[in-house]
Every structure is written in structure tokens, then in C-alpha cells.
């Protein structure tokens, strides 16, 4: 797997954690506070710090693309399952899907711009 794609996936996981905790009143927040005694505001702060430090490790080109996509959509990195981008549910060109086998490149969806990784 491409090392920058690994970073993007880690970033996406952190964003998912932050999004779950950022909701003012959600089931996630309730569970985390009830069962795990999580300090939500501190947790969100820590996640934001980690997200920023991880972004610094992206190449300038990828960081620019990331920053362009991230404010617009919750999921910046999406799986491709059976040839379909799970960001926009549009089929990925066969050539792109073929190039991305093994996730050795950092590819984006031509339709929605999300970074892609192939689930084999």
C-alpha cells in the first residue's frame, strides 16, 4: 500500500472518531461518557491536534488536494468495492481500478474527488 494512502486512511479514521464525538447529543457521546468516562471536549481537542500533525506528513500536493476535499465531505478516503466508489456510488473506470490493485498508487475518483482504496 502506498505510504501516503496509509496516512490518508489514518487521517480518515481520526476524522471519523472526531465526528462521532463532536455531536452535541448522540448515541456515541452517550455511550462513550456512560461506559468509558470519556472527557469529550478534551478528546476532540486531542484528535484535532493529531489530525493536524498527520496532515503535516502529507506531500504538499496531496495536502492541497486533501484540504480542498475535506471541508466538503465527511469521507475524504473511500473504499472501492466491486468497482464502485463508495463516496459517490459511481463506477470507477476499469483502468483506474486496475491501476489501483494493491493500493500502490494514490488515486482519486473522477466524479467526486475522494481518495480511493480498493477493497479486494
Amino acid at each position: 500500500m502506498h505510504p501516503q494512502l496509509v496516512l490518508l486512511m489514518e487521517l480518515q479514521d481520526l476524522r471519523a472518531q472526531k465526528r462521532a464525538l463532536h455531536q452535541d447529543s448522540g448515541e456515541t457521546v452517550g455511550l462513550e461518557e456512560e461506559h468509558f468516562n470519556l472527557d469529550r471536549s478534551r478528546a476532540v481537542e486531542l484528535l484535532e491536534e493529531k489530525i493536524e500533525s498527520l496532515k503535516d506528513t502529507l506531500t504538499p500536493q496531496l495536502r492541497t488536494r486533501y484540504e480542498r476535499i475535506a471541508p466538503q465531505r465527511d469521507r475524504v478516503v473511500v473504499p472501492v468495492i466491486q468497482g464502485t466508489c463508495y463516496g459517490c456510488f459511481v463506477s470507477i473506470p476499469t483502468a483506474t481500478a486496475g491501476d489501483q490493485i494493491g493500493n500502490t498508487l494514490v488515486e482519486t475518483c473522477e466524479n467526486c474527488g475522494s481518495f480511493l482504496y480498493i477493497v479486494e
Binding site: Q12, D13, Q17, A20, F36, L46, L47, V77
Partner: peptide, 22 residues
């Protein structure tokens, strides 16, 4: 990273590590 936010060890010898992941 989830553990770093706060342990998922809920006491009485039990832990529930959990996360969403791609």
C-alpha cells in the same frame, strides 16, 4: 489513538477496545 483519549478498560477486569476504521 482511541486508547490515548481514554482507556476502554471499564473496570472489573473488562476492556472494550473499539473504533470505526476504513
Amino acid at each position: 489513538r482511541r486508547e490515548n483519549l481514554g482507556s476502554t478498560g471499564i473496570g472489573k477486569g473488562i476492556a472494550i477496545p473499539h473504533c470505526r476504521s476504513l
